[in-house]
Design a protein around this nucleic acid. Structure first.
Lengths: 229, 229
DNA sequence: TACATTAATTGCACAGCGTACAGAAATTGG
DNA sequence: CCAATTTCTGTACGCTGTGCAATTAATGTA
């Protein structure tokens, strides 16, 4: 049961730790977007030669995976399992939290979607979600299906929002993004797309907190209909 | 009203057309994955020097945008507006169609999510969706919100499926993907993630047709609850 | 028919990327 | 003090997007 990470190894001492590599990557992600999260960029950030990074991770994908894990690990799973709060509220809190955190560095969600999410923090999140949905009255099979549905919904919504942001810069405020959309929507020919043009005001607000919560509520409605079967 | 694309221009004749550029890109996408859709790869496919591509598109992002538009344009919108079919069935058909088409070249959905979907084919799809949801009894505002919800759901589900596929190769059959997942899930420690381990069988099938349809049905349930308010 | 104009294509170059390989530097157990 | 072991660096290869200048091909006009 000894910590088998410390027992005084032989060779040269490490200049940094794996966590510092991840930290440097996240620093780049926030400051210069997802494309800037490069091996060479991270190395420069740490004052190392590019290939020194390969001491800590086998390839770029592994670094990305560790970053994803770190981002997922920041979520407050305790709030998710607090059984004194209604289950729908708990999910709303988690979803809002994830959205805020992931849109803080646009491009982060693209990292999530660039590989399977199979790390321990991803598992922990899934497990907590299953617990909430059991509280909601779903049997284990339905709870599992619903948990995936929720993850799809949350990551999908965030990904679509992120898709229309130019990667660098930590995302303008929502009001500004809505205004930009409204401006672009005014160019739509009302004769060819009458319904779209007519609903332009609502469409402009697709990237708002309200639409995000509305969509989640419809999903939760659908899930709730399967409860205590 | 004359075709202002033909009136006999002056300089050298174009070796290919914009559509051939897009076709070459899609050929690469299907054969060697999203990463292979490079300017140089397209140029090689067409027998041109790399920078000749810049005659047709200003940069790589524009090429990607055209590819996305082309993929969206392949969807059968007529089936969406056939009012003799129940509206839920029509949406299921469209969703299944999109999934099949996008998973045919994994990585395609990442292209969709790499920029705003604001081309004419994207607009046409949105417009058709609004019509279906009007048929479902939603007022224009709710229909707009629901249409975005549906797009989020469909693209999110496809993106999550694509995320765990190694980009090249046109996606193994579903049964094989489920088997692979089941294998990986057997490694999950049941003591730390009891619910996850217990539902492993269901979780393995997250990438199945059934889960896709199940999730869509929950979303449609939620949307249906807002009809004829 | 000859020439000038215009557009498409090419060659070359630059800066960046991931990463493989060999060697130098640093640290420790014996 | 030496040998073993680990980390870090130098160098290099092949790939990417794309800007600039020169070349090639097609046309309208004289």
């Amino acid at each position: 049961m000894a910590k088998d990470t410390s027992p005084a190894k032989r060779g040269r001492k490490r200049a940094v730790g794996e966590d510092e590599v991840v930290a440097a990557a996240i620093r780049l992600l926030g400051a210069r977007g997802a494309d800037a999260v490069s091996i060479r960029g991270i190395a420069a950030e740490l004052g190392l030669a590019p290939n020194a990074v390969y001491t800590y991770f086998p390839d770029r994908a592994a670094v990305i995976g560790a970053v994803v894990e770190h981002l997922l690990g920041e979520t407050d799973l305790a709030a998710l399992t607090a059984r004194d709060t209604p289950w729908r509220d708990r999910i709303h809190t988690l979803a809002g939290d994830l959205r805020r955190r992931l849109l803080a560095h646009p491009g982060a969600v693209n990292l999530l979607l660039s590989g399977p999410m199979d790390g321990p923090n991803a598992l922990a999140l899934g497990e907590a979600l299953l617990a909430v949905l059991a509280d909601a009255g779903l049997d284990p099979t339905e709870a599992a299906r619903a948990s995936y549905l929720l993850i799809v919904q949350v990551l999908g919504a965030i990904a679509l929002e992120a898709a229309e942001l130019p990667s660098p810069a930590p995302a303008p405020p929502i009001a500004e993004r809505v205004a930009t959309r409204r401006e672009q929507l005014r160019a739509i020919p009302a004769d060819r797309f009458p319904r779209t043009a007519g609903a332009a005001d609502t469409i402009a607000q697709f990237v708002s907190d309200e639409q995000y919560a509305w969509g989640l509520d419809r999903v939760l409605d659908g899930i709730e209909g399967r409860a205590n079967s």
